[in-house]
Nucleic acid binder design. Structure first.
Length: 229
DNA sequence: AACTTTCCCAACCGCTAAGTT
DNA sequence: TAACTTAGCGGTTGGGAAAGT
């Protein structure tokens, strides 16, 4: 995927620097008014894109790594119940996103379809007395590639690369390094009544609505925030 | 070793619901 | 209450990497 610009809007994969910038501004403004956040953050991204990046990748409560057997079972169960209502299913799986579940299901269904196809072929080629009910039983689905070697290696690779832990530790380090113009400083300075000075997570929904009434001076201040490179 | 196929997932698109003015 | 904005959802696509030939 190659990042591209359409007008002033950047598209394609996010860089580490963009992630950091987005995380910092979400910490400041909270998870809302994404168009505005995209604008003031200086990210050449649409609000929609920012929101998606946050929700699907940067949110601190997201779980990493493969689905556990328990989660897989739950997904199957809930999909039976609710169909393709991924967001609703995701609500029952803390730390998992609708996108993740959707992708997982799609992969799973593809495999399942292939399995069925091959099994049906082999069944039709062998004894007609063998029951096809085995093929469609949920057990045969559940046995499918749960410990799939490929996904294991993919996860290992991910672990070797850039992780969210690293993003968050870098954000923390930045907050400590910066002094007067730091986020914490800024927050203390212009939003001192907005809650604890050091939030454990970037979820800032407790912050006052006053945040949205920043004046021009504060706006300039935001735009001049140091960009870590 | 080079090429092709398959798998996986991040990101985008279009639509709709909910909220605001 | 209509018009507009914002947020969220589900479907789809594109590309990197692993596996297969």
């Amino acid at each position: 995927m190659v990042a591209a610009r359409e007008g002033n809007t950047r598209r394609g994969p996010w860089s580490e620097q963009e992630d950091l910038q987005l995380v910092r501004f979400v910490r400041l403004f909270g998870e809302r008014r994404w168009d505005y956040l995209a604008k003031v953050s200086g990210l050449s991204r649409s609000g929609k894109s920012c929101r998606l990046r946050w929700v699907n990748y940067l949110h601190p409560s997201l779980k990493r790594g493969p689905m556990t057997p328990q989660e897989e079972e739950l997904v199957i169960e809930l999909h039976d119940k609710w169909g393709n209502r991924w967001a609703r299913i995701a609500q029952s799986l803390p730390g998992r996103t609708d996108n993740e579940i959707k992708n997982y299901w799609r992969t799973r269904m593809r495999k399942k379809a292939q399995e069925r196809k091959t099994t049906r072929t082999s069944v039709s080629n062998s004894s007609p007395s063998s029951s096809s009910s085995n093929v469609s039983s949920s057990n045969s689905e559940e046995n499918m590639d749960i410990g799939d070697k490929k996904s294991e290696t993919v996860e290992l690779k991910k672990d070797e690369g850039f992780t969210m832990d690293q993003i968050w530790s870098e954000i923390g380090a930045l907050d400590q390094m910066d002094d007067g113009a730091s986020f914490e400083g800024l927050k203390e300075g212009c939003c001192s009544d907005l809650g604890p000075s050091s939030l454990p997570s970037p979820v800032c929904e407790y912050w006052s609505e006053a945040l949205w009434r920043i004046d021009d001076e504060e706006y300039e201040m935001l735009l001049s925030l140091p960009v870590h490179s």
